[in-house]
């Protein structure tokens, strides 16, 4: 057990270090900050002299966008993390030795989570500086949202790892990930579109489709890591401690389920591409 822990630590150290030596990581954070800066500037420009704008947490929407961009980067990274090593063959070399699916996947999960936490630390710094510059306010709510962000990233990473454990090659990982996320979005889009149309305007088949997409939409709310993102930030806005803790617990359970599923799948699927 202790040796397994050391193996995990070694894998984590290596993976983390070399992820930090890549441009992609900094590029993703930069892109998210650029988007946030754009949104914040627009927000400020929207308030004319002698006017007001009532908004819950003006930094929350940029934070949401930042989390989405960072999560997208991390979900892609984790989605290819196993398949890339499978494809490159490096996974097999690790498995000649003391590495097991569990130690490998936990180290990968922790690595991506640590990258996420580091990105959130950058985000906290960015928003702090932004709030000092503009007086937009680095509130406790924002700090709570950032902490919630850790758990949301945990969901995103574990989901990505699961996709990666299923697929043999990087290309199929990305296609699978995009197909799943695309399907989530499509269901959400169709659901919202049909919801916006009066029942009387819908034929029986479309009514059936609306009912089906409504069930699917509810299902997606439990499967899609991005649904956890929205709900988690909602719980911060609502300032409901119980809801907040419940969401954290949901995220922990979600992450555990997907990491264990990934370990199981990887054990079955093997290390070969």
């Amino acid at each position: 057990m202790m040796k397994n822990g050391k193996v995990m630590k070694t894998l984590l150290k290596r993976d983390l270090l070399y992820a930090l030596y890549s441009w992609g990581y900094y590029g993703a954070i930069f892109a998210s900050f650029l988007a946030s800066s754009f949104l914040l500037k627009n927000f400020l420009d929207a308030i004319r002299e002698e006017d007001i704008l009532v908004s819950a947490f003006p930094l929350n929407y940029p934070l949401y966008i930042t989390l989405i961009v960072i999560s997208l980067y991390l979900v892609i990274m984790s989605a290819i993390s196993i398949s890339r090593e499978r494809e490159q063959g490096t996974l097999e070399v690790l498995f000649y030795g003391p590495v097991t699916p569990a130690s490998f996947l936990w180290s990968r999960y922790l690595k991506d989570l640590t990258l996420g936490i580091l990105a959130l630390a950058f985000t906290a710094l960015y928003f702090y500086v932004a709030s000092v510059l503009t007086n937009l306010g680095f509130t406790i709510g924002l700090a709570k949202a950032l902490i919630m962000g850790i758990f949301l990233i945990s969901c995103v990473v574990s989901f990505g790892l699961f996709i990666s454990s299923l697929t043999g090659r990087m290309r199929s990982s990305i296609i699978t990930l995009m197909a799943i996320l695309g399907a989530f979005l499509a269901i959400q889009f169709v659901y919202n579109m049909l919801l916006g149309i009066e029942k009387e305007s819908l034929s029986p088949s479309l009514l059936y489709l609306r009912q089906t997409t409504s069930y699917l939409f509810r299902g997606i709310n439990w499967i899609s890591p991005f649904a956890y993102l929205s709900r988690g930030l909602d719980s911060v806005i609502l300032e409901n401690r119980t809801l907040y803790v419940t969401h954290v617990l949901y995220c922990v359970i979600y992450s555990l389920v997907f990491v264990f599923l990934s370990i199981y799948t990887m054990g079955k699927r093997g290390v070969k591409a």
Binding site: I47, E49, E50, D51, V54, S55, A56, F57
Partner: peptide, 11 residues
Amino acid sequence: PSWIIHAVGKN
């Protein structure tokens, strides 16, 4: 309660 009134000038 979380909503904030943002202003920039004379109001």
